[in-house]
Computed example of a mutant assay.
Amino acid sequence: MLQHILPVLFAVFVWWFGTALVFLLDQLPRRSFRWTMAGATAALGGALYGVVALADDVSVSAAYLGFACGVLVWAWGEIGFLTGLVTGPSRKPCPPGAEGWVRFIAALRTILHHELAILALGLLLVALLWDAPNQVALHTYLVLWVMRQSAKINIYLGARNLGESMLPPHLAHLASYFRRRTMNALFPVSITAGTVAVAVLVQRGLGAGDFEAASSTLVAALMALAVIEHWFLMLPLPLDGLWTWGRPGQAPANTAPCPQHVETARLPSRP
């Protein structure tokens, strides 16, 4: 039992502490952002070195270290995005009345460079760990990537809790692309697929050897946390306080969704 409990506790700690730390760094003066990014880049280099060094190691400690390396690789992209250093070619709010492809393209232009960066890092991990016995870092990164993309699309389509109060002032324009809704058509698919993935990973880890049990449980715990984060999008509760110590003292100005994107439809007929 302990071989499953400890990975869960480790994943929860890394998820909560890492998220809050990134938000805390983002609240420092903007002149510090390049130093923050330099530190993140050094951590990225160390994580990639660790990925290669652990590729053939199937010990329990290697599972934990591989998980940490995957999170550190992902953190580089998150820090680059939240500091505004790796975002997109556009920093403009959503054009008034924009819908359909016009709104989608405008939204994509605000995050395009970030999307390309995390794609490149994902492909790099695939190349480094191709046929490697220890692929925990890659699986960790893929869970973070897939579920974060799902969360982004759900917020774009419409959610109850948009988290706009967590946006720093230099990213306030992103809130204009959010929609406030009590439900959207993608959300049940995201929750169902994520829950099934958790069940498959848990089943894979039960009765397995030490390394397989640790690695599967770590990734399953991370996937479960991502599913819980998705539920946070729709629950009628203010849940930003989970990272209170890593958020600004007050919501930045002009972060509310555009009026035309605040809707209450239970099931949207269009994005």
Rank of each mutant, 00 (worst) to 15 (best):
E99A: 15
F33S: 13
D240G: 07
R266V: 15
A265E: 14
G80A: 09
V143S: 06
A151S: 10
P95R: 01
L206Q: 14
L21I: 08
K92V: 13
W76R: 06
S215Q: 06
G194K: 01
A199H: 04
G39N: 09
L218I: 07
I191M: 12
A214Q: 04
I191W: 10
L125E: 04
F10I: 12
C94V: 05
G246Y: 05
V227H: 00
T264H: 13
R270C: 10
L174I: 14
L206K: 05
F187G: 00
Y49W: 15
F104W: 13
F33C: 05
A193F: 10
R247S: 12
L186V: 05
L242G: 11
N254M: 06
V102L: 12
A42K: 01
M223E: 12
A175D: 01
G209N: 13
A197V: 09
A185F: 13
H170V: 07
G66D: 08
W145V: 03
Y49M: 13
L144A: 08
P95V: 08
A75Q: 10
L157I: 07
A199M: 11
G77K: 02
V227M: 04
V8I: 15
G163M: 06
R31D: 13
R270A: 15
F10C: 11
N254K: 11
L171A: 04
A151H: 11
V126I: 15
R34Q: 12
L162D: 12
V189T: 10
T19I: 02
V219H: 01
T87P: 02
G207M: 09
V146P: 03
L108A: 14
M147R: 11
A120T: 11
A62K: 07
W101F: 13
W16C: 08
A265W: 08
V73N: 02
T264P: 00
R247V: 09
Y177F: 15
S61G: 11
G249C: 04
P169R: 10
G66M: 01
L85M: 14
T217E: 03
T255R: 07
R31G: 12
L21Q: 03
S190V: 14
M37I: 10
V86M: 10
R148P: 06
P7M: 06
L116N: 03
L237C: 08
L162T: 15
A224M: 03
V126G: 04
T19C: 00
A193I: 13
L44K: 05
R179C: 11
F67A: 04
A42Y: 05
W101H: 02
I5G: 10
A53I: 03
V136H: 04
L242W: 13
P7Q: 02
V219Q: 04
A172I: 01
T87D: 03
T217K: 00
T244F: 15
L128C: 11
T182I: 13
A68D: 02
Y64P: 06
A107R: 15
A132M: 08
L119N: 03
I79Y: 05
S165E: 15
M223R: 06
L242A: 09
R30Y: 01
G158L: 07
A63W: 04
R180E: 09
A43P: 00
P133C: 09
